[in-house]
Write a protein that binds this DNA or RNA. Structure first.
Lengths: 129, 129
DNA sequence: GCTTAAGCTATACTAAAGTATAGTGATATA
DNA sequence: TATATCACTATACTTTAGTATAGCTTAAGC
């Protein structure tokens, strides 16, 4: 039985569950969080590396989103006192475990695509008969 | 091994994976999709029932989001020719399987909260020593 | 001494998302 | 006859998200 479908039995927990979902959504929110997290899943990166790897992102957005992710405990920011400074961004443990969510999304997304295409084919068949 | 971490071995699939994640995100996008889906997980509902169950939603947004969900194959809309018309909204199979994603989000969200609180406690300890 | 690079920030703007408020047509109820 | 309900739609507005462009400091390379 899924966590969600247990809600009927455990109504008093639903607030906590909704909070947890909102937390997750907030972390992934916006146009650039997923590309950034996706890029960092392959290992720590410097600011300019991320800027180069993520097409069309502006430094303003990269900076803003990285700050957001840092505040939310998803990435760490490490400054080395070279000059000019070197700054490295890395996923925290929480950040790394986000792949469980991404995996669920991949699985659902792929399955959904198949279903939608299947439906369209059925409609096409029905029409062509 | 997770789907994501297989990306290194199966680079050519990454485009498909990213598409799947985007599909999922688009389905859940915005302020009202999750409350609506959450409400429909308990069974089919009429327009006014949803409006009453989801605090602060306006009919404009409810209508807009339901249309969106319908176009994306997440809900079905059934009109009965009573008068005035009765309209029922119900999750499709794809819509129902979304709970796998929500469960992953709940699990991650709860775990993340624990971790963040844990970190704060460690910092507090370190400071108080 | 000029250009390039890193790692950003500032200002001004546009576009997208969401809100507020009112109103529609058919019908049932008081 | 007046009011209420259902399932919305229309118009105008505000708020938030994202873009465009320029600039900062320190230092290395030519």
């Amino acid at each position: 039985m899924s966590t969600i479908s247990q809600l009927d039995q455990v109504k008093k927990c639903s607030g906590e569950f909704i909070l947890a979902i909102n937390d997750t959504m907030n972390v992934l929110n916006g146009k650039w969080k997923l590309p950034i997290i996706g890029s960092l899943l392959y290992g720590k990166k410097r600011f300019k590396e991320l800027e180069r790897e993520i097409p069309k992102i502006t430094p303003r957005m990269l900076s803003k989103e990285l700050k957001d992710l840092e505040v939310n405990g998803i990435v760490t920011r490490t400054v080395y006192n070279t000059s000019p400074v070197t700054v490295e961004y890395e996923l925290t443990e929480s950040g790394n475990t986000l792949n469980t969510v991404l995996d669920a999304m991949i699985a659902w997304g792929l399955q959904h695509r198949k279903m939608v295409i299947g439906k369209k084919e059925k409609v096409a068949e029905a029409v062509s008969v």
